[in-house]
Design a protein around this nucleic acid. Structure first.
Length: 105
DNA sequence: AAGTTGACTTTCG
DNA sequence: TCGAAAGCCAACT
């Protein structure tokens, strides 16, 4: 285990993630931006620790791919929520950020 | 106080 | 469009 974020930071992140509507997604950087910071990595840490209590699959990387190692589980949710996806030739996939990106403002 | 780590981002080739 | 390298932030040792 590595560096559990402070309670303040954790609650703030969970609140933002929980506010993302179904079928939409936000990048780690976006979530951090809402908190007034650029700690995208710290956001990832919060997900690894408390992600089980929020729709963590709606938080993805700027590349349009979900958290590393969780792509399979995330795909199930995306298909269930009809999130805009882009299937790649290699059998992989990626979220269509241009359409699915959620703007909290 | 300095070094290490991570569900990241951006820039360059 | 893809991969490698450097940059950044927060928290731990």
């Amino acid at each position: 285990m590595r560096a559990a974020p402070s309670a303040e930071f954790t609650e703030a992140v969970l609140a933002v993630v929980a506010a993302i509507p179904p079928g939409r997604v936000m990048t780690y950087g976006d979530v951090a931006a809402v908190l007034g910071s650029r700690a995208a990595r710290a956001v990832g840490n919060v997900m690894s620790w408390y992600g089980s209590d929020v729709p963590w699959w709606r938080v993805i990387r700027a590349s349009g791919r979900p958290a590393a190692g969780h792509e399979d589980r995330a795909l199930e949710h995306f298909r269930a929520e009809q999130t805009p996806l882009v299937t790649t030739d290699g059998g992989g996939y990626r979220v269509d950020l241009r359409r699915a990106r959620h703007d909290p403002a």
